[in-house]
């Protein structure tokens, strides 16, 4: 699947479904480490049809970042069954993310 570019509504929609694990990458276009994280989450999306992967631009959707206390980017949140189960702050490898998602 492709990476979804999330609005506030789309974010709420994907985290409320309970069939698939969800990975959300909080990023900004001006953030160096985020540019390194981007290709990693894209690979996860392409290679795993059972995971929903979204990117959330903190400049555009700041209220979601505030709600989840995201004060550092990249931050990656993992949701399962509609609940937040893991938070990773800073550039995180594919292996670590996949281990937490599976």
């Amino acid at each position: 699947m492709e990476v979804l570019h999330l609005t506030k509504e789309k974010f709420e929609e994907i985290i409320s479904q309970k069939e698939k694990a969800v990975l959300v990458d909080f990023f900004a276009t001006w953030c160096g480490p985020c540019r390194m994280q981007g290709p990693i989450v894209e690979e996860i999306a392409k290679e795993n049809d059972d995971i929903i992967v979204g990117k959330l631009d903190v400049d555009e959707v700041s209220e979601v970042a505030e709600k989840y206390n995201v004060y550092s980017i990249p931050t990656l949140l993992i949701f399962k069954n509609g609940e937040l189960v893991r938070t990773f702050v800073g550039l995180t490898s594919k292996t670590i993310l996949l281990n937490a998602l599976k």
Binding site: W30, P33, N69, Y71, S72, I73, V89, G90
Partner: peptide, 17 residues
């Protein structure tokens, strides 16, 4: 508090503050 107000990178995270 790393990632919850503690940061190691002004240029990355300054935006939130």
């Amino acid at each position: 508090f790393e990632g919850k107000g503690i940061s190691y990178c002004a240029i990355c995270d300054g935006f939130f503050y």
